[in-house]
Computed example of a mutant assay.
Amino acid sequence: MWQGWPIERVLILFAGLAFALIAVQVTLFHARQNFRHWAMWVPVLELPVFAVTAIVLSFMNAGWLRWVFALMMVIGFAGGVYGAYLHAAGVRQRVGGYSQSQNFLVGPPIILPLLITAMSALGLLALFWG
């Protein structure tokens, strides 16, 4: 089944599976915080759509689906950067702010939204590399 698949196609499938796993983790973290901010719903809703789109695209290379996926990856890239900003602001709001290293351990994970940014960049690279 994998023989003959170009690396771009494998990477899009990998990105889709990664988005599915990240979606589970993000949903658990944001549910634990009772969705206190409206923006917490954005990755919970968009990541499963990213995952399904990438997985379907890896098996069905339709031109319109490539453009939808590209648009989603641009949105995911920007959303991840914005999420990292919101998470950094969340760490800053904790008692002691950035000066308390404990706040980086128990506060919102700054790296997780950047993982969404990185996976979106991977999706774009895979889509347009070939």
Rank of each mutant, 00 (worst) to 15 (best):
W2Q: 06
Q3V: 13
Q3W: 08
Q3G: 01
R9Y: 00
V10Q: 14
V10E: 07
L13Y: 10
L13N: 04
L13V: 03
G16F: 00
G16T: 01
L17G: 02
L17E: 00
L17P: 02
L17I: 12
A20T: 10
L21I: 12
V24M: 11
V24C: 09
Q25A: 11
V26E: 01
H30M: 09
A31C: 01
Q33W: 09
Q33M: 10
N34G: 01
W38H: 04
W38N: 05
M40N: 06
E46R: 06
A51Y: 04
T53R: 02
T53S: 14
T53I: 09
I55F: 08
S58K: 08
M60E: 14
W64S: 15
W64C: 07
L65I: 13
L65D: 10
L65N: 08
R66T: 07
V68E: 06
V68Y: 11
F69I: 04
A84D: 04
L86H: 08
A88I: 00
G96E: 03
G97C: 07
G97P: 07
S99C: 00
Q102N: 13
I110V: 15
I111G: 00
L112F: 11
L114K: 02
L115M: 14
I116R: 03
A118D: 06
L122W: 11
L124K: 08
L124R: 07
A126G: 12
A126Y: 06
L127A: 08
L127C: 10
L127Y: 05
F128R: 10
